[in-house]
Write a protein that binds this DNA or RNA. Structure first.
Lengths: 236, 236
DNA sequence: GAAATTTTGGACGGTTCCGGTCAGTACTGT
DNA sequence: ACAGTACTGACCGGAACCGTCCAAAATTTC
């Protein structure tokens, strides 16, 4: 049987819980921009990213704004954990990679009978809750440069290696700002030697430096995940 | 036995669930600024506002930023629902009033054994989750005037009558902006005949007008609550 | 290897909101 | 009645963005 240990939630499960869940999991390869679901859709699958990054967005007029990202530290399908069927947010693959997928029905059955699984999923819900809450104030008070650094750190934590594909344009959409604004902010980070980029390929050069430029929201949220998921979600 | 029907979550419970919970509830009268708990505190009570409004805030440097408000449509103590003990946010009474309170331990026991209670609390968690997610993008994209109108509408939904106590200064803290900024925005709303205020007493004159000035986040979130809590949380 | 496309850099004025400050106007307590 | 304390209104220059454009450079397509 395949192992899904790359995902921290699945890794945190006791062996028998993990085994029962694994019977329903399959691994899929999802390219960037794959749509998982959007507001109004029925949540009929739950997703556990292995080395991909998924973005959760909310509608703003005709456009979308990013609310949170999910990677190997989490899962997509909280409505199922909450016992509801309809998604209120849009989820799509931000950085392509592998995802472990299970049908929502089977997952619901397991949640009902497996205390350990339910406990871990609810703890994750609390962590996610905290992350989003912090983002509410982050978007309000922190500068583009700080949020840009925070976003890069969070993404770095969720992908293998120090490099990933991301254009200024794409990052601008995620941060809800102009592309030109990202070019300036990212240019500053590059000048400071913290990152390096070239036509959509971003490399993180100095995590600590990046963290000192970013707002405290990064560490605050990372610590909550560490505590609730029980493992460090940060790189290094 | 006292009735706690003013709270929509408690009202949504089937009679026997409501009865079991009511045995552990007492009503307290909480003046404005009463602290419920803050990050790091153990959540040893859960709170169901009856006619008060509670504010949830996250730390931003040395200050606080509002993340969400909770009134008769909800409850404070989601960590307990999530099976965790520690609060990650600060909660305090924004607009004084009565609150039904139960010990977290007893509530946890009931959650374990009472399916209906658990179902309703988790549905509420999903609604709250959506509200906060929407606020992430709202704070980023919508103008002070729009957010001001939204905040007034949400508060109006949660208090009895059309008037409540709120100074510009206090509202500015909630919105995370300068007091002077609120004075301008609120002045506009007053000139337009939507609200009326005088030394800390705000009266809502025209809900529909206020809603057309506010961003769509108000309606979006209100509709989610209606669907998940099963009753309209809006006035009129 | 020429043409089209994607990605990045840079500039323009304009808007919103900031930080700070000062003044006026209503309530409050004694 | 008076002093003190809220509360609101208004002003200033400045910062951080915006929307919009143009241009250069790297990459892909044909």
């Amino acid at each position: 049987m395949a192992t899904y240990d790359e995902n921290l939630l699945l890794r945190a499960l006791p062996p028998d819980s993990a085994g029962r869940l694994a019977e329903h999991l399959i691994t899929m390869d999802a390219p960037s921009r794959t749509e998982l679901y959007e507001p109004g859709d029925t949540v009929n699958r739950v997703y556990f990213p292995l080395d991909s990054v998924i973005s959760m967005t909310a509608p703003v007029g005709a456009t979308q704004g990013e609310v949170a990202t999910v990677g190997q530290e989490g899962m997509v399908g909280l409505p199922t954990v909450f016992g509801t069927e309809m998604a209120n947010m849009r989820f799509f693959v931000q950085i392509g990679g592998r995802i472990a997928v299970a049908p929502a029905d089977e997952f619901t059955d397991l949640l009902r009978t497996d205390d350990a699984l339910r406990t871990i999923m609810l703890r994750y819900a609390h962590a996610m809750f905290t992350q989003i809450g912090q983002s509410v104030v982050c978007n309000q008070r922190h500068s583009l440069k700080q949020r840009c650094a925070r976003w890069l750190l969070m993404t770095h934590d969720r992908v293998p290696g120090d490099q990933f594909h991301l254009t200024h344009e794409y990052l601008a959409v995620m941060l809800g700002v102009r592309r030109a604004g990202v070019t300036v902010a990212a240019g500053n980070l590059q000048k400071a030697g913290l990152i390096k980029y070239r036509r959509g390929e971003i490399t993180i050069l100095n995590r600590d430096g990046l963290e000192s430029v970013s707002c405290e929201c990064y560490r605050l949220v990372a610590d909550v995940y560490d505590r609730l998921v029980g493992q460090s979600i940060c790189k290094d």
